[in-house]
Nucleic acid binder design. Sequence first.
DNA 1: GTCTATAAAGAGATAGAC
DNA 2: GTCTATCTCTTTATAGAC
Lengths: 341, 341
Amino acid sequence: MGIVERKNRQKQALRERILDAARRIVMREGFAALSMRKIADAIEYSPATLYLHFASRDEIVQALCAEGYAQLLETFVPLAQIADPADRLNALGRAYVAFGVAHPETYRLIFMEDPSYTGAALGGAAGVSGASVAAVAEASAAGEQEAVTAAGTAVAASTASGKASLAPPKPDDDPGDAALHIMISALEELKAAGRLTASTDLTVWAEAFWATLHGIVALNLTCPVFPTAPLDTVLNVALDAWLGTQGTGQQARVANASLARKKKSTEARVEARVEPGESHVAQGGKPATQASQASAASDKKSTKPPGPSAIKPTDADTNPAIKVDTKPVVKPTTRPKATSA
Amino acid sequence: MGIVERKNRQKQALRERILDAARRIVMREGFAALSMRKIADAIEYSPATLYLHFASRDEIVQALCAEGYAQLLETFVPLAQIADPADRLNALGRAYVAFGVAHPETYRLIFMEDPSYTGAALGGAAGVSGASVAAVAEASAAGEQEAVTAAGTAVAASTASGKASLAPPKPDDDPGDAALHIMISALEELKAAGRLTASTDLTVWAEAFWATLHGIVALNLTCPVFPTAPLDTVLNVALDAWLGTQGTGQQARVANASLARKKKSTEARVEARVEPGESHVAQGGKPATQASQASAASDKKSTKPPGPSAIKPTDADTNPAIKVDTKPVVKPTTRPKATSA
DNA sequence: GTCTATAAAGAGATAGAC
DNA sequence: GTCTATCTCTTTATAGAC
């Protein structure tokens, strides 16, 4: 039966080519410019062929969303191994914002375009990349158990989660909750360690925290004038507000002394935890380059001129190893204008 | 020369009809469904006529944005008269979120669609409704001076700003900064009163705070699954994180005792400050109904079922006095599908 | 000022030949 | 499986009659 398998492979390959082309168009010209004709032209097939692989344009878009969301989750994988839960939350927040800024069109597609696309990403990413999702969830679970007992056992925790990421994936978890559960786990550790007086539901806290991150990203992608301050500065203030003095006053302050220490240093935290342990991350089977690359992208943005009315460049295209959205040529969410009539 | 004036009036009237129709379409069917033909059909003119009043579809959209932003600013006017700066920030945050939820399509249009639209709203709202913008700025300035001297002088402050809102407008202020300056003023009061140890730039703080609010609204409008918790709950946690324990620990906690008092009561704060003084607000020339209506809209949302995958209803159409967007019939940001082919 | 008519471009999706 | 050809439908914007 090698023939049918070859045909399957070819069919799958063409499907990938379609998605690749679609992704390129979205990155280059924005989501609104994505059309079946353009995809067909890009892969040098007829438009009708696309319908043999995808039932509609929407199905392509949703596949794109699922891919993008899986990509975002992969960014979190190495971060889930950070031992200190506060540091972990901090790193997750930075990575999230960095991802949004580095992949503006992908981020728009997943979280800012259409509820059905968002739902497709959060509910359907498992099919595309279930392994990474499961790895994230398990890494976070492993980290939780370790950190409750004692702090500073980063090596042991990372070893455990390294094995977990090699374990057989459970592809049918709800990927939408995976990222949130990472945060909630960190919060539970904080609470268990007495570093967080939980006056509120941890799920709500995580969701509100996430909303803050989303607001920072969304504003940077859409609002040309408002975040006058550099992205990093705003992000620092937000992370301070949520992590620096969280809880009820004195108690939380003492507990977060390790965070307050480097209050003005913007980026060092993630790399201080992850990069010295790059060996253990590589051991775990996942490359650590995404984390450092992500924080690097976030840092570059701090050189943005503070003046208003300048559409912010999304200059995160330094590392060609990572696919990065570039600024769309046409306006993102509007219909393409008539050229000359 | 009465003839030319009548013609000008008629021209202006048609312009308004065009915008009215456009607004209705956006509210009913979403922004993507707005086309010149539909507007023309709605006002029973030919499409060509529209181009005698607006150079392009974009110009109509930008006028809509400016209107919407002015509408949002008007929501802030009565709130700027709240004496206590922390209460004022709290009320502003709630009003902002309530506006976004009550007018989803307007909010999308201003802040979530296209950077150029956002810029048009923030930079061009003065032409549409410069008076209200100036009133907001002056009301906030008046409140600042009062509250530095002592707390609890709500009557005096409101009288002063009441006069201010009747003063001749300065229509050419940058409306984009107006709302932010209200927040910054409140922060300066907090700082001057020693209730906020300013470890960070106040402008940055205000922008980050605003980003949080935007994130909460944007997520509620776009993400079908994620804010599992009711909108109000998330908003409360966020406001607590920013206002409840802001500053460095103990000092802020004592200072914010008045806020912590009613921590679990969701809506009473705005009305406790504004509604007993409804006389003074009415005296100032601005109706106070918008503030209470806004917080009421926010509260209704808390009955949302927490289950995922349900597109959240935007049921804020109780008060017919306020124009409220309803849920679009078609998908918001996508091209309308081909009906039958 | 307003209309009819139409240009110019583009979209998604399908039928049927090969 | 793939293509050609086509259908149906949409859009913005303009020309020229009245």
